[in-house]
Design a protein around this nucleic acid. Sequence first.
DNA 1: TGGTGTTCGTGTATAAAATACACTAAGTTT
DNA 2: AAACTTAGTGTATTTTATACACGAACACCA
Lengths: 236, 236
Amino acid sequence: MTLHQINPNVSVDCAIFSFDQGALEVLLIERHAGNSEIKDDLMALPGNLIYEDETLDEAANRVLSELTGLTNIFLEQVYTFGNPNRISKQKDLDWLRAIRASPEARVITVAYTSLVKKENFKIQPSSFAKKAVWVKVKDVPHLAFDHNEILDKALDYLKHKIYLEPLGYELLPDKFTLAQLQKLYEAILEDSFDKRNFRRKILRTEFIVKLDEKQQGVAHKPAGLYRFDKSRFHKI
Amino acid sequence: MTLHQINPNVSVDCAIFSFDQGALEVLLIERHAGNSEIKDDLMALPGNLIYEDETLDEAANRVLSELTGLTNIFLEQVYTFGNPNRISKQKDLDWLRAIRASPEARVITVAYTSLVKKENFKIQPSSFAKKAVWVKVKDVPHLAFDHNEILDKALDYLKHKIYLEPLGYELLPDKFTLAQLQKLYEAILEDSFDKRNFRRKILRTEFIVKLDEKQQGVAHKPAGLYRFDKSRFHKI
DNA sequence: TGGTGTTCGTGTATAAAATACACTAAGTTT
DNA sequence: AAACTTAGTGTATTTTATACACGAACACCA
């Protein structure tokens, strides 16, 4: 393991989304300050300072991996937050004093986001993350630093992105029903749609192909299963 | 004049666009290193290190003002560039050694963009900008640092943004013809449109209102003049 | 002053996409 | 076998996109 020099002025934060039971979720960590006595009940987006010898994208991947165990995630940059007062809550200051070499440094943070199928990843918190948990976006509490603002920006980014490409590929299981897909769109866009029109529109893309298979074990008419065919994708 | 502490790790760069004679232009500076003997023929986007006590938005405004004289510009953040090797050309290294206290520092830069009517601003270069000039985007040469990449990203941002709001308001004179507006769209989107369809579509917005006035002094049928009515604007 | 050159301004037909709306079908449970 | 629950489908209407050609208005020049 090589030693890396830390850049005390620049961090990355990751807003990782997943979709479960019709609701959008985001990955948060409960931070803790090593062996110190800091009692800190704030949750946060996984994030940390960058190394001098890595790109921002690399930093985002490394930090996410170190704090949650998630690796090989395709992360996209969302926005950079640089208000000098973005670290001003007493709890945040106390926590930084406990864990950082330059706790008073002014830190600019670059926000990244990604979408994952949570069942494909085992969450393994390490470093200063006491644990990492999936939290429904609707239930996200008051977070550390300016992380609520960062989360909002990442959600805006998502809403925008779903117009450009079908995001379900990243968020749904390999086989899914059109009702699941519709719920995903409704969750991200915070809207609701007519079932017939949604199905017509989504099937027009030819990106979603029907399988010769049905849902099992549901107490009603089973829905047909579909899958994404990436090869048929072309920008909308 | 108060003294400000400089953050050696974070800079801002501004891609300021204007529109003239049917072509999109960008504001570039010819940098020079004070009294030093550095011969440097690279042009660059206006940009510099931030102060510790200002937000990124404030830094972008200050830097733009210091280097070009443009003030009170509404700047929007585009993207953040943080490749550790983004400063690797010999000319860039030489130039930084001549002007910076920590010329070897790894610098992350936050790109900003804006649109201006160039006739409303007098360009007054100062600081290390030898001069500031409008250059047609099609004619932009090889730039300092990774500024060509930054410019490309800003142009992408523009293309995207014109779908969300009618940008002509920022770029055209108060009174303009529909042909001018069409050329603006064509320049930004690098496409061309049917005149009748373009007019129908743009007038459907009710954001653009016809004046009881015509073009003067043209050697052909004079075009009617229009203006933007911001109050009628609603997101598309 | 009449002709030439140039850009302006307009309408219609067709195709594609968006929207609104309600009932039968296929399973499971009791 | 009846009740329950979600799946799956079609049509009519409006809106938007696209393709396409010619007379009108002005300046300029001979």
